[in-house]
Amino acid sequence: MATGGRRGAAAAPLLVAVAALLLGAAGHLYPGEVCPGMDIRNNLTRLHELENCSVIEGHLQILLMFKTRPEDFRDLSFPKLIMITDYLLLFRVYGLESLKDLFPNLTVIRGSRLFFNYALVIFEMVHLKELGLYNLMNITRGSVRIEKNNELCYLATIDWSRILDSVEDNYIVLNKDDNEECGDICPGTAKGKTNCPATVINGQFVERCWTHSHCQKVCPTICKSHGCTAEGLCCHSECLGNCSQPDDPTKCVACRNFYLDGRCVETCPPPYYHFQDWRCVNFSFCQDLHHKCKNSRRQGCHQYVIHNNKCIPECPSGYTMNSSNLLCTPCLGPCPKVCHLLEGEKTIDSVTSAQELRGCTVINGSLIINIRGGNNLAAELEANLGLIEEISGYLKIRRSYALVSLSFFRKLRLIRGETLEIGNYSFYALDNQNLRQLWDWSKHNLTITQGKLFFHYNPKLCLSEIHKMEEVSGTKGRQERNDIALKTNGDQASCENELLKFSYIRTSFDKI
């Protein structure tokens, strides 16, 4: 039985969820670079991206490699990797027998973001014989899940209580170790020597080791999670996991709180800001991140802002960003909400898709409305799209047979046209069989910064309504002859009103 693990408890099935942008060198404390989270699957090609990484700022997932063999891993080693800020997950990587050479110096898994409450997941690794993470000293947050690894031993010899604050939620089941077939031998045991430290858990006094050649490092209890030197002297209180010299914040392997210019500090002093819960960055760093993602459509890219001495992905609820200094300031009234469309555009074809934009005031991208039916549609669209004030790209209304009016965009005031449909149009209306009105132009103002209007096959939309939009939106004169079809717009509506004058002759039985 794995020490510190839980057996036999019912657990939810383990679901495996399925960018080499360097964020800056980590400095003297770390020998390499800070790398983003990685999802490495199918083959070993991307694994080489770990070569210079000291910190993975995010998670590391290595999974679904069915053609790899043990010899493929023999020359692979990433000794610079010290810390993973989120979680480490391995799933069905064939041929991998140990992690001792792959990650010989991995010391800390912070667990800032977890995989279903777990910071370390080893699942269905069919050839893994031992973990071998002999320098792993601290899992700051989260638990361990090690399950269905039929060859995995050296679990009962690990004292997880020396690595985690609590072992109650560890789930370590259905491994070879369960069948008591392992016969784990710690260093020196074969020669009758006791080389590794022994600890007591559940009444068992057991030597602690990761492999037959690597003991588990056990520091004096007084050192807590700070770690200790090879001689057993406690590291500085700002260290986490390990250090090369005692009581020196510049000799830590990793930091308990924050890293700044080669030393570990309790908090980031001005003019620095907390970033990702582990390091200090200056304003320029946060500003660069903001600008890199301002026009990016890459998933996970955030326009970072500053709030409460932190550089964070977005302002919290009730705050909006001051564009001059990136500071989050309290909103006066309802907060603006910028919604970034991942692929640059979004099609609204149902109430469900409209709900995804609920509360958005600025759309960074283009909207395509293609709704053919739905219950209580006008009210639903207004509830979900009615706060949109600005669209950076274009607005396209296409084959939306259920629409009679666009009044559900009740606050839309600006279409920038930074991206144009077919390279020309910022407003595009095609084949809307029941569209009769755009907006009530006596109450609604709309500016279209650039781009043209396109109207074709809107049989109940009168040309007068379209011409009014040209005047109000500032697009009059931009359109070419064929942009607004004269014969297919309003051709099934009563669009022309003329005053009919009647004269009559009164007659009676005795007068003409």
Rank of each mutant, 00 (worst) to 15 (best):
D178N: 08
D288I: 03
R279A: 10
I312M: 13
G58I: 00
F116L: 02
R162V: 07
S213H: 12
E231W: 05
V93T: 14
P70S: 06
Y304E: 06
L174K: 15
N175Q: 03
C280S: 00
C255G: 00
M83K: 03
G262M: 06
I306W: 15
E181A: 12
F91G: 00
K100V: 13
N135I: 01
S323A: 12
R263S: 12
E147Q: 03
P31Y: 15
R113L: 05
C286L: 02
V253H: 14
V108K: 06
Q245V: 13
P197V: 14
F78M: 08
L96S: 00
M321H: 08
R279E: 10
V173M: 04
V265F: 13
D248I: 05
C186W: 02
R110C: 13
C335L: 04
C243P: 00
C311L: 10
P269I: 15
C252K: 01
L106A: 00
C264M: 00
G300F: 13
C153H: 01
S213V: 06
G318L: 12
V200Y: 04
L136T: 03
H302R: 08
V206T: 07
H291R: 05
S77I: 13
A190F: 08
N43G: 07
G241A: 09
C331N: 10
L120G: 00
L164R: 03
L99T: 07
L120N: 01
Y30I: 05
V206L: 13
W160K: 02
P70H: 15
K148V: 07
P104G: 02
Q204V: 09
I312F: 09
F258E: 03
C328V: 01
C331K: 03
H274F: 14
N309H: 15
L174C: 12
Y304G: 04
T107C: 03
Q299S: 09
N282D: 03
L81M: 03
T250H: 12
Y30M: 03
K294L: 03
D75M: 14
V200P: 03
L289R: 09
K148W: 09
L60M: 06
P246F: 13
T250P: 02
P336I: 15
C331E: 03
D159N: 07
S213K: 13
G32Q: 15
P249M: 04
P197E: 08
T329M: 11
F285E: 13
C153F: 00
Q287L: 14
R46I: 09
G227R: 03
G111H: 05
D86A: 07
A230T: 07
L96A: 05
K129H: 03
P104S: 02
W278H: 05
S225W: 14
Q204P: 03
E124L: 01
S98W: 01
R113A: 11
E130G: 09
A254L: 13
T329E: 01
K292W: 14
C252M: 04
R297N: 12
D178C: 02
Q276A: 12
Y259V: 12
P269W: 11
K310P: 02
R69F: 05
W160I: 02
L233K: 11
K148S: 10
H127D: 07
N42I: 02
N322W: 05
F73S: 06
I172F: 04
P334Q: 06
V281P: 00
P197C: 08
S237I: 06
R297T: 12
C335R: 02
R297K: 11
L326P: 05
H290Y: 09
K191W: 00
D178Y: 12
G188P: 05
N170P: 04
Q276W: 05
E151W: 11
C209Q: 01
C286V: 09
F115T: 07
T329V: 10
T267Y: 15
D247I: 15
E151C: 07
F123N: 02
L155Y: 03
L81K: 00
L260A: 08
C215N: 01
T229G: 07
G232L: 03
H127L: 14
Q303R: 06
P249H: 04
C35R: 01
G192K: 12
D165Y: 04
D184R: 15
N309K: 11
M65F: 09
V108W: 09
Y171L: 07
F275T: 03
V305H: 06
N42G: 14
I109H: 00
I158R: 01
G300L: 08
P249K: 03
G132V: 01
N282I: 02
R46C: 10
K251V: 09
Q61Y: 05
R297F: 06
G58M: 00
D178V: 09
H48V: 13
V218D: 04
S284T: 09
N195K: 09
T211E: 15
D178T: 07
L120T: 03
P246T: 03
R110S: 12
G318A: 09
L50D: 00
D177Q: 12
I201F: 13
N150T: 06
E130I: 09
I109S: 00
Y30R: 03
K148H: 04
V55S: 02
C335M: 02
V200Q: 03
V144W: 00
H48A: 06
I82F: 11
V121N: 04
G111W: 02
D248S: 12
C235G: 01
T85H: 07
T211A: 03
C209H: 00
N105W: 04
E180G: 07
G318Q: 11
N150G: 10
K251M: 15
D159P: 02
A254K: 00
Y87F: 12
S317H: 14
N135A: 09
E130K: 10
D159S: 03
T68D: 04
I158Q: 02
N322S: 07
T140Y: 07
I122H: 01
V200N: 06
R141V: 04
L164D: 15
D72H: 05
D165W: 09
Y134R: 05
C219H: 01
D101N: 12
V121S: 10
H274S: 01
P271L: 06
T140A: 11
D86F: 01
V173H: 14
L164P: 00
P246S: 12
D72W: 10
N325Y: 08
N149H: 01
P313N: 04
P334R: 15
S112R: 13
T329H: 15
A190L: 09
C215T: 01
L106H: 02
H48Y: 15
C264L: 00
H214K: 02
H28L: 13
C252D: 01
G111N: 01
N105H: 05
G232H: 07
P104D: 00
D86K: 14
S77D: 07
R141N: 02
E147K: 15
C209L: 00
P269Y: 15
R41S: 02
D248H: 10
C311Q: 00
R279P: 01
C223P: 00
T229R: 08
N135P: 04
C264W: 02
K80Y: 15
E231G: 13
I84G: 00
